[in-house]
Every structure is written in structure tokens, then in C-alpha cells.
């Protein structure tokens, strides 16, 4: 569970350009810093990362004209101080319309194998159109957004530099995906502890870490690996009867009723409220849910069972979860408008 490999693997603009035969006079700054104890950043064929594409995606991410009323941008519900989640249980879209699920954190999405709580969407590029088209969120057609962007001279040169085209549905989705792909959170106190800084976590936090990765608290069966998720879909017994079918909406298979994607726990102390519907307000509430063992329903996960954790152990676990907060990530000026 502790991947201690030293050194930083940097995805360099110079390498990418060199791969395409361009000439580079000076070494540009790295586009994304990925530490050696993280896997290399996955970047799909057809959308290589470049500084221009990231810059264009950043501008689009914070552009409220992507919505019907001009009031909602991606950044409206994905706030940096909350690790790009929303403190509201259900976010508010155009015309005050409320969504149906809690806005997730956007850290380390480059590594995700599926998107949204039900995992219906397989790529970051394909994910982009969903909030744009959702009537509860931005309520636009992709064509309407492209027309607005294309009429703005401020975007013309950015699209030309990034993709050598005018704005289009293809480049709109590719640009926003490129920006989001760079949102890597990898420098929490937990990470620094793993890299050898033994002062990065105190005794209580270390006790909590041992509980987290042990059978007693049993968190690690789902929340494992560098990103604290196995990317599976589980029914954690939040309800006896689910108003939201979860994964079953995608698979149409009753065994997926009430299953939702196991979220990453990185920056979890900043991403309240919790669960697919934001129904648990605090980490203490979440822990109380798992200690109780969840509500029995036809699909409750076999791993769900009451946990025998005393008050001190619960406090230790929460102290550990707070070490997953990455101050550098939430203060990184590259992720601001």
C-alpha cells in the first residue's frame, strides 16, 4: 500500500513537442507534475497535452456562457477550495434547478476508468457534454455553446493555437478534458509521509492509517491504491430502498440497483457532504454509517458489516482522512480562472 519511489516523473512539453518533430529552444515548465509513486498520466491518442490546450480548457471551464442563463460554469459547482466539489448536497444549475446527485471532486480524473456516480461514461472527453446538455445543469446543446465561443474573438486564436481549427464540438470537449486531466492531487501529508517525511503525519494519524488499511476498519477493500478507489460499483447500504437506481440506470441489471462508484478519498475532508446524494454532512456521519453497517437491501455489499471501532479509533481514522488534504492542489494558481 505504500509506494515509496523517489523522484518526480515530469510530463514535459518539450518531450511532447519533440515527439511530433517540433524544435524547442528552451525547456518550458512541466505541464503536469506526476510523482514517481503515481502511475504515469494517461493521455488518450488524439488529444496530446499541450500548454495551449490546457490554457484553452481552463478558460472554457470557468466560462459561464456555457450555460443557458450565462450563470453557470463548470467551476460554479466544482470549487477549488473544496477540491473541485460543491459544499451543497445537490448543486444548483440554470434557473435555480437542483441536480439529483452530489457534484464529485475533480482530483486525479485522468486515472478514472469511468465517470459519474453510475460510471456510464468511459472517457473524460465524452464526459464533457453531459453537464452542458443536462437541463438541470447548463441546459445547452453543444452546437449552441460552440456558436457562442466561435463568435468571441478572444477564443479564435486560442483554438487555433491549441487545435489549429475554429471552435467545434470535438475541440470544445478535447480542450476541457485536457484542462481537467492536469488536475493531479499528489502532495498531501500522507503522500509526503510515504515519500519518507516521517514528520508529515503525527502518531494519531498513523494509528488511523493502520486502521484504514487493516481488517478492523476495513476501508481499504474499496478505497485502495494511490487514488484510494478500486473504481468499482458498490451498494454501501445507504438506504433500504433507493430513490436513485445508481449503476442500474446504465446496465439495466437489477443486481446494480443502488450501486454507485467508489469515490477517491483524496481531499475527502474538503469534499463534504458525502455519498451520491450528499445526504451525509460530515466525515463523522460517514463513519457512523459504516460503523452501523448500513441498511439491509437486496444488493448490499457483502463487505458491509458493523464495525467494532471505539471513539478513539474513530477519531484516529478521521485524523488520518484529513492527511489526504492537498494544500498545494487547492491553492494551485493553474487551476484558477
Amino acid at each position: 500500500m505504500h509506494h515509496i519511489r523517489l523522484g518526480l516523473f515530469l510530463v514535459l512539453a518539450s518531450l511532447l513537442l519533440a515527439a511530433c518533430g517540433g524544435s524547442v529552444d528552451s525547456t518550458p515548465p512541466p505541464l503536469v507534475a506526476v510523482p514517481g509513486d503515481f502511475p504515469a498520466l494517461p493521455v488518450p491518442a488524439g488529444n496530446a497535452l499541450t500548454a495551449d490546450r490546457i490554457e484553452l480548457g481552463r478558460k472554457l471551464f470557468f466560462d459561464k456562457r456555457l450555460s443557458r442563463t450565462g450563470e453557470v460554469s463548470c467551476g460554479s459547482c466544482h470549487l477549488q477550495e473544496h477540491a473541485f466539489s460543491d459544499p451543497s448536497p445537490l448543486s444548483i444549475g440554470v434557473h435555480g434547478r437542483r441536480g439529483t446527485r452530489n457534484a464529485p471532486s475533480l482530483a486525479n480524473l485522468a486515472y478514472n476508468t469511468s465517470f459519474f456516480w453510475d460510471g456510464g461514461v468511459p472517457t473524460l472527453e465524452q464526459q464533457v457534454v453531459v453537464p452542458i446538455m443536462n437541463p438541470l445543469e447548463m441546459d445547452m446543446t453543444v452546437g449552441e455553446v460552440v456558436a457562442i465561443i466561435a463568435a468571441d474573438p478572444g477564443y479564435t486564436d486560442l483554438f487555433r493555437r491549441a487545435y489549429d481549427t475554429l471552435p467545434s464540438s470535438a475541440t470544445l470537449t478535447r480542450a476541457i478534458a485536457s484542462f481537467v486531466r492536469t488536475m493531479v492531487s499528489s502532495n498531501s501529508r500522507y503522500d509526503r509521509f510515504g515519500r519518507g517525511d516521517k514528520g508529515a503525519m503525527n502518531e494519531q494519524e498513523q494509528r488511523g492509517m493502520r486502521l484504514f488499511f487493516g481488517e478492523k476498519a476495513d476501508c481499504f477493500h474499496c478505497h485502495l491504491g494511490f487514488n484510494f478507489t478500486n473504481n468499482s460499483f458498490r451498494n454501501n447500504g445507504l438506504y433500504a430502498e433507493y430513490a436513485d437506481s445508481g449503476r442500474m440506470l446504465v446496465t439495466e441489471n437489477p443486481i446494480d440497483l443502488g450501486k454507485f462508484k467508489v469515490p477517491s478519498l483524496r481531499n475527502v475532508a474538503l469534499t463534504a457532504p458525502y455519498m451520491h446524494d450528499g445526504s451525509l454532512a460530515t466525515l463523522e456521519d460517514v463513519l457512523a454509517h459504516y460503523v452501523a453497517g448500513g441498511k439491509v437491501n437486496m444488493n448490499i455489499d457483502p463487505l458491509m458489516h458493523p464495525l467494532n471501532l471505539d471513539e478513539q479509533e474513530q477519531a484516529d481514522l478521521i485524523a488520518f482522512l484529513k492527511t489526504l488534504t492537498d494544500e498545494e492542489f487547492i491553492n494551485n494558481p493553474r487551476f484558477r480562472p
Partner: peptide, 13 residues
Amino acid sequence: LDVDNDMYWGWNP
């Protein structure tokens, strides 16, 4: 098959 053809499910592509 364009994304705006009003026949596309973005949430379950």
C-alpha cells in the same frame, strides 16, 4: 450521429 442530433444519451454514451 452528431452530439446534438436529439438521439444521443450523453450520460450512457
